[in-house]
Simulated scan of single mutants.
Amino acid sequence: MDSAGDSRTAKLPPGVPIVRALDRAIALLRAFRPEQPRLGLSELARQVGLDKGTTRRLLQTLQLNELVEHDDRSQTYALAVGLIELGSAVTTGRELRDVAGPYLTEIAEKTGATSFLWVHISGRALCVDRVRASLPHVDATWFAVGAQAPLNCGGGPRVILAYLDEAQRRQALALELPKRAPASQTDPELLWREADRIRTQGWELAADDFFIGLTGVGVPIFDRGGALAGALSISSLTSIVAPEGRPAHLDALQDAAMRIGARLLPA
């Protein structure tokens, strides 16, 4: 068993083994990404480290349960509608998403940027909602709802990092911190200082750290009890978000975050 497997097994109660067939099926589901929504049998087998026969049998079982679908013409697999049904029962971020939805639309329309809603989960930022601005000249891979982001890049994720407690922040900075662009910060000590700065400032402007030419602005959302509920952010061309090196729509973001928080009961 590799080190990753050892680490996951250590999280189980003593004497409780990982169910290998289920673990492999989940690995197949996780192989699909927004940028790779369709994959062939050979690629799936390669990604999860299984032979084609085992991979095919697992996929057929997943297909029987409407969790994956197969396209006969292209001979590729994709995630299926059964996962949407399962996802509708996920409670993480549900109250925040239900409250914040209209405000995300308002912010996207007002700023001309894509708006995002984030929550913290296990040292990463989970995108629980987004409203994409209609800007055909912006061509970038945006975080989809359900995607998780490390906390070193992006306005929203970096705001999340800033408002975590010490133990949570250490956990986040111990995870992989990818360098997505030349401006991406990956040094944990530097990121700790940056988090302190963001917390003191109350917002974050993240330029060129995810894609060159794009800038994000994030602000925290607090519930009525003052606890961090998540983060609200926008992202678009720097000329739209921060034309003079300062966030052009900070007041609108902070106002929306305050109105969202005023409707959130303490956890």
Rank of each mutant, 00 (worst) to 15 (best):
Asp139Leu: 15
Val119Pro: 02
Phe143Val: 09
Gly154Pro: 11
Phe116Ser: 03
Ala144Arg: 09
Asp129Pro: 08
Val145Gly: 09
Leu117Asn: 00
Ser122Cys: 12
Leu126Tyr: 00
Arg132Phe: 05
Leu135Asn: 05
Val138Asn: 02
Ala147Asp: 15
Gly123Arg: 08
Cys127Met: 02
His137Ala: 06
Gly146Pro: 12
Gly123Gln: 03
Ala125Cys: 04
Thr114Met: 08
Asp139Met: 15
Asp139Tyr: 15
Leu151Met: 13
Leu135Gly: 03
Leu135Trp: 01
Asp139Gln: 15
Gly146Glu: 06
Ala149His: 08
Arg124Ser: 11
Ala149Gln: 09
Gly154Asp: 13
Ala149Thr: 11
Cys127Asn: 05
Val119Arg: 03
Thr114Gly: 08
Thr114Val: 09
Ser115Leu: 01
Gln148Glu: 10
Trp118Thr: 00
Cys127Ile: 12
Cys153Gly: 11
Pro150Phe: 08
Ser115Val: 04
Arg130Asp: 01
Gly146Gln: 07
Asp139Asn: 13
Leu126Trp: 03
Leu151Arg: 14
Val128Ala: 04
Gly112Arg: 02
Ile121Gly: 07
Ala133Lys: 04
Thr114Pro: 02
Val131Ala: 04
Ser122Glu: 08
Val138Tyr: 06
Trp142Cys: 09
Leu135Met: 05
Arg130Lys: 12
Leu126Cys: 02
Ala125Gly: 05
Asp129Phe: 04
Gly146Asn: 06
Ala125Phe: 03
Val131Met: 02
Arg130Ile: 08
His120Val: 14
Ala113Asp: 01
Thr141Asp: 14
Gln148Pro: 09
Phe116Asp: 01
Cys153Ile: 10
Leu151Pro: 05
His137Ser: 08
Ala140Gln: 08
Val138Gln: 03
Ala113Asn: 03
Phe116Gln: 00
Thr141Tyr: 12
Gly123Cys: 12
Ile121Leu: 13
Gly154Ile: 13
Asp139Cys: 14
Ala113Ser: 07
Ala140Val: 13
Val131His: 01
Leu135Tyr: 04
Pro150Asp: 06
Val145Ile: 15
Gly146Ala: 12
Cys153Val: 12
Gly123Asp: 01
Ala140Tyr: 11
Val131Leu: 04
Asp129Ala: 13
Ala144Gly: 13
Thr141Leu: 12
Asp139Trp: 15
Leu126Lys: 00
Phe143Asp: 06
Val145Thr: 15
Val145Ser: 13
Pro150Thr: 11
Ala140Phe: 13
Arg124Trp: 03
Leu135Cys: 06
Ala140Gly: 04
Ala149Asn: 08
Arg124Cys: 10
Gly112Cys: 05
Arg124Gly: 05
Thr114Tyr: 03
Leu135Ala: 06
Arg124Lys: 10
Gln148Ser: 15
Thr114Ile: 09
Ile121Asp: 07
Gly123Ala: 09
Val119Gln: 02
Arg124Ala: 11
